[in-house]
Design a protein around this nucleic acid. Structure first.
Lengths: 359, 359
DNA sequence: GTTAGCACTCTTTTCTTTCGAGTGCTAATT
DNA sequence: AATTAGCACTCGAAAGAAAAGAGTGCTAAC
C-alpha cells in the first residue's frame, strides 16, 4: 500500500527530527519541522495511521513517536534526499587516503578517517584472496643469511630475512631461486606443500633444506592473504551518543566487533553501492538496535572489500552513505591500479625528489 | 616517619580490599581481611591516624576510607607482595607472542595480549630509532617495473614495487644498485637528501631519474623508523569497571590515548623494571584518577620501547606488573636477536619485513 | 593501650507527589 | 469528508520526604 504524500512528509519529519534529537517526536514538532500547514490534531491522526501501518511506534502511551526499522527502511529507500559530499570533505578524504604510505595500514587509516568524518566507529573487512607467487628472489647477504622476496600475484611484495646457523654460498641461492621460479610460481597455496615434499624427495641439490624454509614462507604468505581480516576502530566515539550512555551496551557492541563478530557481516552485496543494515535486519543479537552502513570497494584482482560504520539505528544515513561511498571510491582507485593522489608514484617520476610533500 | 607494623597491615588491607570492591573500606572489613585481632574501635583510631598522615581519605564523613595516591605509592613500593606469574599464563604469553608472525603487528598483538590478561586497555610505544640502510637491492621484473629492497641497520627489510611509464633495462638497475651500495649505505636520513641531489648533479648516468625514486623510498623508510609510534587497544575493557560506568570518563581516557596523549608518557625509565604511575603523578589532567603501569623492553639496536596498561588507580598492581614484565621480557627476546618460540621455522627467522604495493 | 556504647552524619533507597508533554476522542467547523 | 478546537487522560520524569543503613568520632570504662 502506497502512502499518501502527506504521510510521507510526516514520516520524513519524524525520522529526521529523531535522528537529531534522539527523543520521541510529537505532533507539534512534526509541524515545525515539516512546514506543513495543518493543526496538531490532523497530524496526530496521521501519526496514528502510520503507527498502525508499522512505520512508527510509541515508547509509551503519552510519548511522541519514534521510527520503527520498517520506518527507517522506507526512509532510506525512498524518502531520504541523497546528500552530496561537500567539496572540503571530498578533498580531505582524497588527501588523507593518499597520504597513507604503508599499504598494511591503509585499511586502518581509512577506518579512522571514516570515524573522524562520521563520528561513528568504523569497520573494514579486507577480502580474502587466493593468490600465488609470481616471482621468487633470494638475496645473498653473507654466508649465514639471505632475504627471501616474494612477488605475489596481486603485486604485493613480501619479504623475510633468514639467518642460518650454518653457512652456504651464493651459488646455492641462485640455483634454488631458479628452481622456485621454474616450479613454484603460479601454484596455489594448497598445492605447495606436496610440491615441496616432492621436490625434497627428488633431492634437489639442497643439502641444508633451504627449500623448506623458502616454501614455508611462501605458504604462510599465501595463507594470510587467504584470510579475510577485519579492523574495528573508533569505538570510543560511541560513548558520546545518548543511546550508549549506559556503558553496558557500548561494551557489548565494541566487544562484538573487536572480536570475531565482524566476520559475520554479509560481505556479498551490490557492487559499488552502499548498503544499509537497519536494526533487526542485522544478524546478531548484539546489533538489534544498531545499524551498519557498508560500502564496498574494489580491492583489485577481482575481489571486493568492505568499509563501513556502526551506529545507532538513528543515524544520518544520507550523510554517512555519501562519505563512505566517497571513501570506498578512493580505496578502489588506490587499490586497483589508478592513483588517488599526485603524491604517489605516478607523479613522483616527473617531479622527482619532492620529499617535502611526503614529509 | 616510619609507620608502625600494625598501621602497615591496616593500610594494606584497605588497599587490597578497595582494589577488589571499589567501595570505601570500613573498620569492620579491615579486621576481616587483615586477620588482626582487635576491636573495630582500635582500627578506627588507626584509620584516623593514617588519614591524618595522608595515606587515606574519606569520600564523606560517614563512609569508609579509600587510599590516596600517597597510600597507593607506599603500598606499591613497600607493602605489596610481588606476585609470581603462574605457569599457565607464562606459557600462554610465550606461545601467543611467538605466534605473532608479522613484525609490524607484533606490538599490536602484544598489546591485545596484555589487555586479555589484565582486562585493562593496553598501550605500546615503539622507540624511535635513527637507522641507516645497510644494503640496497633492485630486482628487475620487466622493462617497466622493479622492486626496491632495503635492508636497514636493525635488520628490518623494507620493499616497494615500482612501475614506470617508460622502459629501462636490467643493466641500469645493476649500475644504480652499485652506486647506492657504494655511497648511500650507512647514511643518516638527514644526510640523504643532499647526497641524492649531489649525485643527480653529477649526472650519474641515470637518464630517467630512478635515483630520486629509490632515494625517496629510502628516506621515507628511515623517517618512519625515526618516529615513535603508539598503539592503544582494548579500550572497551574500561567499560566494565564501575569507575567508568559514566561513559564520559571512559571517553576522555580513550580519546586521550587514541590520540596524541600516549606520546607524552615518560619514555625514559629504569631499564627492564616495571614502573607504576599513580593518579596525579601522571602528566595529564585526563589521567588524574588513572594509573599507568609500564614495562620497558629491549627493542634491539640500543633502543627501548614501552608496553603498559591503563586503568583506575585501584588496580591490582602486583598481578599487572608481573604480567607486563613477562610480556616485556618476551618482546625483548624476540626483538633483540634471540628467538622466543621454537615453533616452525621461527628459529631461523630474525626479521620479517612488510610488503609494499604499488597503487 | 584497648574496647564497648552511643549519638551523629551523610549517603542510599524507597515511596509519594507533582508536573508536563503528548495522546486519543468527541463534537463543532469549514 | 476533512480538519480542527477542546478536553480528559496516561504515563514517565523530576522533585520532595521519609526511612534505612553504614560507618564514624568521642567518651568513659576496662
Amino acid at each position: 500500500m502506497e502512502l499518501s504524500e502527506r504521510k510521507k512528509k510526516i514520516l520524513s519529519a519524524v525520522v529526521e527530527e529523531y535522528i537529531i534529537s534522539a527523543e520521541p517526536v510529537g505532533s507539534k514538532t512534526v509541524l515545525e519541522r515539516s512546514g506543513l500547514d495543518f493543526s496538531p490534531a490532523t497530524v496526530r491522526s496521521e501519526l496514528a495511521a502510520l503507527e498502525k501501518a508499522g512505520y512508527l511506534e510509541q515508547p509509551h502511551t503519552s510519548a511522541g513517536r519514534i521510527p520503527t526499522s520498517k520506518g527507517y527502511r522506507l526512509y532510506v529507500n525512498e524518502l531520504m534526499t541523497k546528500k552530496k559530499l561537500d567539496g572540503d570533505e571530498a578533498e580531505l578524504i582524497t588527501r588523507e587516503l593518499g597520504s597513507s604510505r604503508e599499504p598494511e595500514k591503509l585499511m586502518g587509516d581509512a577506518g579512522r578517517l571514516a570515524t573522524e568524518l562520521t563520528s561513528y566507529p568504523a569497520l573494514t573487512i579486507t577480502a580474502p584472496r587466493a593468490l600465488t607467487v609470481k616471482r621468487f628472489e633470494l638475496i645473498y647477504l653473507d654466508p649465514n643469511s639471505f632475504i627471501i622476496v616474494l612477488l605475489l600475484s596481486d603485486n604485493a611484495v613480501k619479504n623475510k630475512l633468514v639467518r642460518l646457523p650454518f653457512s652456504f654460498d651464493e651459488s646455492l641461492l641462485k640455483r634454488l631461486s631458479a628452481v622456485f621460479n621454474a616450479s613454484f610460481t603460479g601454484v596455489a597455496e594448497e598445492d605447495m606443500t606436496p610440491l615441496m615434499l616432492e621436490s625434497a624427495e627428488r633431492g634437489a641439490n639442497d643439502p641444508m633444506g633451504l627449500t623448506g624454509v623458502i616454501a614455508s614462507f611462501a605458504i604462510e604468505s599465501l595463507k594470510s592473504a587467504r584470510e579475510s581480516e577485519t579492523v574495528f576502530s573508533g569505538g570510543e566515539s560511541l560513548l558520546k551518543l545518548p543511546e550508549f550512555r549506559d556503558s553496558g551496551k557500548a561494551h557489548k557492541l565494541m566487544s562484538y566487533f573487536s572480536g570475531e563478530g565482524a566476520q559475520k557481516l554479509p560481505v556479498a552485496g551490490a557492487d559499488g553501492d552502499v548498503r544499509v543494515l537497519i536494526g533487526p535486519e542485522n544478524i546478531a543479537e548484539e546489533l538489534k538496535d544498531t545499524s551498519v552502513v557498508l560500502a564496498s570497494y574494489d580491492a583489485g584482482d577481482n575481489t571486493r572489500g568492505l568499509i563501513g560504520v556502526v551506529g545507532p539505528t538513528r543515524m544520518d544515513y544520507s550523510k554517512v552513505a555519501a562519505k563512505l561511498s566517497y571513501i570506498a571510491d578512493g580505496l578502489s582507485r588506490l587499490l586497483s591500479g589508478g592513483m588517488l593522489s599526485p603524491s604517489g608514484f605516478g607523479k613522483l617520476m616527473i617531479s622527482e625528489g619532492d620529499d617535502k610533500r611526503e614529509g
